[in-house]
């Protein structure tokens, strides 16, 4: 039989209801069911979570740090998107 390795999965855990799932780490598993079971054992041994997502790492498309400039720099000179850009007298309350 051809040698085949267990693929890599990324694990996201919701620590409690009301909070979002957050990336916790990764692990290897043969399929999604096993990835969930392994994630339970590896990342939630001390009540760290109430819900787990697993997704095979190869399905994640990530931005490239080399494109950091074109992706994120345009936001830097748009200070008018922030409330502090606007000059209002101190007498104006609740705004």
């Amino acid at each position: 039989m051809e040698k085949k390795n267990w693929p890599l999965w990324e694990v996201f855990v919701r620590s409690k209801n009301g909070l979002e799932h957050r990336h916790f780490g990764s692990l290897h598993a043969a399929d999604a069911t096993m990835a969930l079971e392994n994630a339970r054992d590896v990342y939630t041994r001390r009540n760290e979570g109430v819900s787990i997502w697993v997704v095979e790492s190869k399905h994640i498309t990530a931005s490239n740090p080399e494109n950091h400039g074109e992706l994120f720099e345009p936001a830097q000179d748009k200070v008018y998107r922030h409330p502090t850009f606007y000059d209002l007298p101190d007498e104006v309350k609740h705004m």
Binding site: N5, D41, V42, R45
Partner: peptide
């Protein structure tokens, strides 16, 4: 529980190491 933690610690660290482009194998 302690020995199980150690397995867990090994797994966290292998995963961190794999992000540098080396495989678990």
């Amino acid at each position: 529980a302690k020995v199980q933690d150690e397995a867990g610690h090994g797994l966290y660290l292998y995963s961190a190491c794999e992000t540098l482009g080396i495989s678990r194998e």
